[in-house]
């Protein structure tokens, strides 16, 4: 009997089936259809424009034949646009501003968001938590244009609330939009205020995931509220804090255009402290119309951003492989 079985087994050959491309395409068709709109958008607005980066190496001038014709007719200047960017003081100022503001946002966002998340996690009144969350999240959904008017209402040189208070109490009015020394603080404050609600919700969700018996164990071990936060809550938030920080470092060369353009109302006398890569590129394009120069600045931003993203991803992969982007 055994012999018969083994003969039968030997004769039956199990063919390993690899589904063909056509059959896989067919079975995944509904999912692929879902992808199409997003893919088209990505191709037109992200992938095709990559090729237009060549203008960073050209003395670009529009000609009647359209963009492609302009590309053909514009002369090649090699790295001249970059040379100009880096030989001027602008490159240093915009790089310094972009990096320092973003570093400031990373630190402030981390500390303040975690602080508020912990405060909310200690609240027992669920309704109050919702009220706080909503009111903290509200600025996140406001447009920078709207916020720039809020700011204007406070610091308008003539009718602004702060100047009224200053003059009312015998002080001197400040021409805020011409006083660069205040703007690093104003920008850091406004930027943090806008994003704090969103970030603190992330940390709050993580804090709420902490096993409540850990607090009970700590309470029995004699830990007071602060010690419970220090030894239970904060360690539980560390992985998320690390991840958020590393991801933010990956974006450190990408400034929030709305904040730096709208809130200072593109005031020329503030450029030294408000000009960041994004606003510099935009201003360069709108004022001088030099597409080559602006593209060089944009390519510089993208390149450094890409390098930082790769580095931060490598770091994330080392710390927590599951959280890595690729």
């Amino acid at each position: 009997m055994q012999g018969v079985n083994s003969t039968v087994k030997a004769k039956v050959k199990y063919k390993k089936r690899h589904p063909s491309f056509a059959s896989r395409f067919k079975s995944n068709l509904p999912l692929l259809l879902f992808v199409i709109p997003g893919a088209i958008w990505m191709i037109f607005f992200f992938y095709i424009p990559i090729f237009a980066n060549v203008v960073a190496f050209q003395d670009f001038h529009f000609s009647a034949g359209g963009f492609l014709e302009s590309l053909r007719t514009s002369s090649w200047v090699g790295f001249k646009n970059f040379e100009f960017l880096f030989s001027s003081n602008a490159a240093w100022v915009i790089t310094r501003n972009t990096l320092l503001y973003n570093l400031g946002f990373i630190v402030l966002n981390l500390i303040i968001s975690v602080f508020f998340a912990i405060v909310m996690s200690q609240l027992r009144n669920k309704r109050l938590i919702k009220v706080y969350q909503t009111s903290m999240l509200l600025p996140y959904f406001l447009s920078w244009v709207v916020i720039s008017y809020f700011v204007y209402a406070f610091i308008s040189p003539n009718q602004g609330l702060i100047n009224s208070l200053l003059t009312g109490s015998g002080g001197k009015a400040i021409s805020w939009y011409n006083a660069p020394q205040y703007w690093p603080f104003i920008l850091l404050f406004i930027g943090t205020w806008k994003s704090i609600g969103y970030n603190s919700i992330l940390y709050f969700a993580s804090a709420m995931g902490v096993d409540p018996t850990l607090y009970e164990a700590a309470e029995i071990d004699g830990a007071n509220k602060w010690q419970q936060i220090k030894h239970v809550t904060i360690p539980a938030l560390v992985p998320l804090m690390t991840l958020m920080t590393i991801l933010a470092i990956g974006n450190i060369f990408r400034a929030d255009f709305g904040l730096f353009y709208q809130v200072p109302q593109n005031s020329g006398s503030l450029y030294n402290v408000t000009s960041v890569l994004d606003t510099y590129i935009f201003n360069g394009l709108t004022s001088t119309g030099d597409i080559g120069m602006s593209s060089a600045a944009a390519l510089y931003q993208s390149f450094v951003g890409f390098v930082l993203l790769m580095i931060s991803n490598a770091v994330v992969r080392k710390i927590d492989p599951d959280s890595a982007l690729f």
């Binding site: 096993d211 018996t213 850990l214 009970e216 164990a217 309470e219 029995i220 239970v232 360690p235």
Partner: peptide, 19 residues
Amino acid sequence: APKDRDIAMVFQNYALYPN
């Protein structure tokens, strides 16, 4: 307060500090 009762407690899910 629990800390002043001179007790020790063992929980069902151990409640060990993971860090």
